[in-house]
Design a protein around this nucleic acid. Structure first.
Length: 466
RNA sequence: GGUGCCAUCGCCAAGUGGUAAGGCCGCAGCCUGCAAAGCUGCUAUCCCCAGUUCAAAUCUGGGUGGCACCUCCA
């Protein structure tokens, strides 16, 4: 298994801290709004990573946090005249439901900031005690970046007096411009916790370090976890700050491997909140099957930026369709999970830093080869067994082909239209039997007008949504 | 301005020294009552220039053009 380490900027062979085990911590969403395609991409990438690690025999512990303390949440609650918890519960539930539709497996641990306050206090206190953090006169606690000689080693940024971190966490009481808040004394009373440092709430960066220590850190290892992941934008300042906190507040570094997934753009435009063109997952899921979105978002290497557009999505769907058509072709045959050479090749491709492109090429070649043989006379008993096993393997490893093939092809068609189509197909079959091709072609035109295509097979006439 | 990434067929996209995967689209054909699906065949020398090498899409230098982060952000 090879992983591109975005800190060392090189592909490294994966060697876990404990043989046979792998721990992965990924920065999850801040639950103040609906998840967008970027959240989906990140969740999908690490879902795939977990599957590939498991397929390689690792006993994986996967944590993905929920940030439920944040200024944006407070703002939203005020706007909607709701409690903080109403907001965070709503968006957490929505996130979970949408991830399920994408076929993203639930993480083993899903820590929340609000449930980790003791761990956060403990870490802040340790940092204060060791002089890596200091309280200001107005009640904030800052991490002293000048106390950490390795600060900025992660992002390899050059310390800049003009650093923009100045702007946001702009307390004139900070010692250094780059210092970031571990604890923010509350000024407006909207969301506050009683801590040893007074009333207030934790800063964003500290929760991840604290939760990693609480839930998964190996006390005596060189690193707290094997892999830490998240979106490319998190490298700085979020991960840089996490790394500093853990380095200074514990006896180990944060992670051995760092993975950062690329951004999702939409039609070439940055999907940023300030531009207001965020493409919400919930909207995409109304139009496309979750598995189509899964396939599309995973079809490009995770490190690259991803340009979401309908044309590419459509091309991607056609590729997924082929998996389902083969599945349909083998419908009704007994399941089988005997290993095949194809499966070893597929796993090898994915084990190379999740090379999905090569994996998809292998899948397409397998499908073509199988169809080719199936097109020739004969029972092909062994080939069918292998193909079924391969499809099952693809389903488990990549999450493609998990649904009933007929339902997949009928996604988004309502019951009334389905009934109409079935009726027209029955009429057409009658006309065909009577060799009245003029009538049957006319009926087919009517069926096509429903937005579907049909195909005559020895097993009967089937239809698919176009 | 600082740091970093990228540039491969009409489109998407692998490939990091050994002579260009795969998919979509298109064209021709097989199959089909006709279609659809499936199958077969056809379609690139890798942004430009210079260099290193027996050998470069892959390494080096320069250029041009995109992009990301540096601010809450996956």
């Amino acid at each position: 298994m090879f992983i591109y380490d975005s800190v060392q900027k090189t592909k490294r062979e994966f060697t876990p801290l404990i043989e046979g085990k792998a721990s992965l911590y990924v920065c999850g969403p801040t639950v103040y709004d609906d998840a967008h395609l970027g959240h989906a991409k990140s969740a999908l990438v690490f879902d795939l990573l977990v599957r590939v690690l498991k397929a390689n025999g690792y006993d994986v512990t996967y944590a993905r946090n929920i940030t439920d303390i944040d200024d944006k949440i407070i703002k939203k609650a005020k706007e909607q005249n709701k409690t903080i918890k109403e907001i965070t519960d709503f968006y957490t539930d929505a996130y979970h439901a949408e991830m399920r539709q994408l076929g993203v497996s639930a993480p083993d641990i899903e820590p929340k900031a609000t449930e980790s306050l003791e761990a956060i206090y403990e870490l802040i206190q340790t940092l204060i005690d060791s002089k890596h953090a200091y309280a200001t006169a107005d009640g904030d606690v800052y991490f002293d970046t000048s106390s950490d000689k390795e600060y900025l080693s992660l992002s390899k940024r050059i310390q800049d007096e003009d650093d923009k971190q100045n702007r946001v966490e702009s307390s004139s009481l900070k010692k250094n411009g780059a210092d970031f808040a571990l604890w923010k004394s509350v000024k407006d009373g909207s969301l506050t916790f009683s801590s040893p440092f007074g009333e207030g709430r934790p800063g964003w960066h500290v929760e991840c370090s604290a939760m990693i220590e609480k839930h998964m850190a190996l006390p005596h290892a060189e690193f707290a976890v094997d892999i830490h992941g998240g979106g490319a934008d998190l490298l700085f300042p979020h991960h840089e700050n996490e790394a500093a906190q853990t380095r200074c507040g514990t006896n180990h570094a944060l992670a051995n491997y760092w993975m950062h997934n690329g951004f999702v753009n939409i039609d070439g435009e940055k999907m940023s909140k300030s531009l207001g063109n965020s493409f919400f997952l919930k909207d995409a899921l109304k139009v496309y099957d979750g598995e189509v979105l899964r396939f599309y978002l995973l079809s490009t290497h995770y490190k690259s930026n991803f340009n979401f557009n309908e044309e590419d999505l459509s091309a991607s769907k056609k590729r997924l369709d082929k998996i389902y058509r083969l599945k349909k072709r083998l419908f009704g045959l007994a399941e089988n999970d005997e290993p095949t050479p194809f499966q070893a090749h597929l796993l090898k491709a994915l084990s190379d830093d999740l090379n999905v492109s090569n994996a998809l090429a292998l899948i397409d070649e397998m499908i073509t080869k199988t169809n080719e043989t199936l097109d020739t006379p004969g029972k092909h008993k062994q080939l069918k067994k292998e193909a079924l096993s391969n499809l099952a393997y693809i389903k488990n490893l990549l999450g493609f082909g998990t649904k009933n093939a007929y339902e997949y092809f009928q996604f988004g068609v309502n019951e009334a239209v389905k009934t109409k189509i079935d009726l027209l197909i029955a009429q057409r079959d009658e006309a065909k039997k009577a060799k009245d091709f003029e009538a049957s072609d006319k009926l087919r035109d009517e069926i096509l007008a429903c937005g579907v295509s049909i195909m005559d097979t020895p097993q009967g006439t089937f239809w698919e949504r176009v």
